[in-house]
Structures are given as C-alpha cells and as structure tokens.
C-alpha cells in the first residue's frame, strides 16, 4: 500500500541552495563524452568535425567540401588539397530523472538521526543542472514517485537555472512508492534526441533489482546513475527479532537479524550497486553513490575526475 504523504518539505528552497552551495558549483564542469550530431551548437565538443573553432585534424579534400576549410599552407608545401577539420561543438540533451518516492525520505534503518535523501537528491540535481545549463545544454527534469510526474521542460542558460532552482525548492516531500521502472520507460521514446540521462534515486523499486537494471538498459541515452545512500546503508543497524516495515508499501516481514544475515544483505547491496555500475558503463556512462552525510560537490567532483566525466 503506497503512502501518499506529499506535503511540503521541512527544508525550504533557500535553505537547500544557499550561497555557499551555489558558490561551490562554480568549479563544476560537465562534459558529455559524446553528443549526437545535428544538435544545436553549444559549448560541448562533439565527435563531429565541422565548423567549430578547435582544430583537430586534416583530411584529403573531396568534392563538395567547404572551400573555407581548405588548408592553404599544406597546398603550397605539398601541392595537394587538404581540408582542415575542427571539432564541432553542439548542445547536449540532459534528462535528469529525480526520485521523489517515500523511501527517499526515510532515515537509515535502525538509526534515529534525521537524515533525508530527498535533500541530497535535490542538491545533486541542482549541481548537475547548474553545470549543464551553464554550458548551454538543454536540461529537462523528470520527477517521479509512484508514477512519473510533470517534468520541468528543457531549460538552458544561466537565467533559466534560477527558474530551475525555484522549481526544485518547491518540490513536495517524498510520500509515494517508487515507480522508477515506469519513469525510465517513459524516457525510451525513439524520437527523442540521444543525450545524457542522469538518474538521481535510491533505485529501491519494489519491482526488483533486475527490473530496474532492465529498464535502465532500455534507455537510449548515455547513463549517469547517481545513487543517494545513507551512511552504512549496506549494513542496517538491526539485530535480533524484528519486524521490518516497508516505508512505501507498508508491508512487513518478521525475521531474525544476525550477523550472517547482515553479511548476506551487504553482499546483495554490493551486487546491486555493481549491476547498476555495469549497466552505466555499458552505456558509456558512470555510477556514483552519493552519501547523505557528506557535502555534495566534492563527491560530484570525484565523479568527474575519476569517471568518464571531468570538469
């Protein structure tokens, strides 16, 4: 049974995105590894060689090529016609899938400290959208809970980013079940221009881990998976005879938690994250687990430095 708690969050938009947080975003750069040809020119470098400003290579002239690109110096020296190639810069469609399910608002199991994955998720979305929008990429945010919610249409540029922050600051509190699989399937429209899909979620879809992985594989964009996780989530602070209750469905399970079970739980947790990472790599993307107890930006910087993305 899905809960429907959708009231306002305890954290306001100004608290979410304060000045310090916004200053920390200045250093982030977001570069997609590949952008599709034919898109509008943006600050992204494409594999397409054409009318950009950054020289990359020469090739023999073939009829029909642009005369403006002929390398006249090589013609004088080699008496052959070569064409100068430049890296063409295009915009990048960025789809950010934001999880607003009830599990995102659940504190760590067995712990009493008030921690909220939603706040972390919103900050991650803001950070990534900041980088993308300032590079003039088109950012679309697709919130979902039990079902896909109305998305924030594509925005681009620094001015539009302020509108995005305001939109994020007004997001309701988490309160429904997780419909990640359905949200991902909604992105799988063949007509959509290929871009980058960033999923910010805890990926705890009751449909199961395999269904989530399968749904991710149907996405036609490059994948960047950002998993929001509580500290020590892979080993809940549970022991003994407990009745655990699902925060979204209300289902309960009575069991005895001992060290062996927690070890198996941690192994399942690791296997699930490994499957997510493999899926992302298969789609020339990356995977990052963002902890709720640490600052957001340093974790994202690590993503760009160590993964396929860099500032």
């Amino acid at each position: 049974m899905a809960t429907t708690e959708t009231g306002p969050r305890a954290t306001s938009g100004s608290e979410l995105f304060d000045a310090a947080f916004l200053r920390s975003l200045e250093g982030l750069r977001f570069v997609a590894r590949r952008v599709p040809a034919g898109g509008r020119i943006a600050e992204q470098r494409s594999r397409s060689r054409g009318g950009g400003v950054e020289f990359t290579d020469v090739r023999p002239y073939v009829p029909g090529d642009d005369f403006r690109a002929i390398d006249w110096h090589l013609l004088q020296r080699l008496d052959r016609v070569f064409l100068r190639l430049f890296l063409e810069e295009e915009d990048l469609p960025v789809h950010i899938v934001l999880d607003e399910s009830a599990s995102m608002g659940q504190p760590p199991a067995g712990r009493r400290e008030p921690a909220d994955k939603t706040v972390t998720a919103l900050r991650v979305v803001a950070a990534l959208a900041y980088v993308a929008s300032h590079r003039l990429d088109r950012v679309t945010i697709h919130p979902f809970a039990g079902e896909p919610r109305r998305p924030l249409p594509g925005i681009s540029g620094r001015v539009a980013f302020r509108r995005l922050l305001a939109w994020l600051g007004q997001r309701p509190a988490a309160g429904e079940g997780t419909g990640l699989v359905r949200a991902l399937k909604s992105l799988a429209t063949p007509s959509a221009r290929r871009g980058l899909c960033i999923v910010v979620s805890d990926f705890l879809d009751p449909a199961g881990a395999e269904a989530v992985v399968h749904a991710l594989r149907t996405v036609r964009h490059d994948l960047l998976l950002v998993r929001i996780a509580h500290p020590g989530e892979e080993r809940p602070a549970l022991s003994g005879e407990v009745e655990i209750v699902d925060s979204e469905s209300g289902e309960s399970l009575a069991l005895h938690v001992d060290d062996a079970l927690l070890s198996r739980y941690a192994a399942a947790h690791r296997a699930f994250e490994a499957a997510l990472a493999d899926t992302a790599r298969a789609r020339r993307g990356g995977f990052l687990s963002v902890r709720t107890d640490r600052p957001i930006v340093p974790q994202l910087v690590r993503l760009f430095r160590e993964g396929n993305y860099h500032t």
Binding site: S103, Q106, D202, L204, D205, P236, V242, I244, V245, D246
Partner: peptide, 9 residues
C-alpha cells in the same frame, strides 16, 4: 521490535 526501513527489496 518494529523497525521501518526504506525498502524490503
């Protein structure tokens, strides 16, 4: 002991 967890997944 009743404990609420984010998911039973």
């Amino acid at each position: 002991r009743r404990e609420t967890v984010d998911s039973l997944l």
